[in-house]
Amino acid sequence: MAETRYTKDHEYIRIEGDTGTVGITDYAQGQLGDVVFVELPTVGKALSKGGEAAVVESVKAASEVYAPVSGEVVAVNSELEAAPGTVNEDPAGKGWFVKIKLANTGELDGLLSEAEYQDYVKTL
């Protein structure tokens, strides 16, 4: 079964085997407002934990999406280029950004569980 982990910067990573699907949380899309453009990395790019994985632009501002873990980009959601609003409509599903092949599954231990993340959002 897939397990989802979260960062305090509002990215999620849904783990399936040694691959993680990365996106931003519903809270994050609500804060951003209408997403008008998403810049995705190239497949094969090596990401390091906490480094820039993608850029998401709302009407008002550009924001960086950070890699929750280190690893290689194995897929990007190129449908977001034509339909960036999917990030607002379905952030946890069709609005994903990249899939990463994890370099070190141990990095997951430092991320928040679903319950921990929801508790964290309540404090904001």
């Binding site: 910067d9 924001s63 960086e64 950070y66």
Partner: peptide, 8 residues
């Protein structure tokens, strides 16, 4: 994710 900071 990090947005531009508001002027504090």
């Amino acid at each position: 994710m990090a947005a531009e900071a508001e002027t504090a």
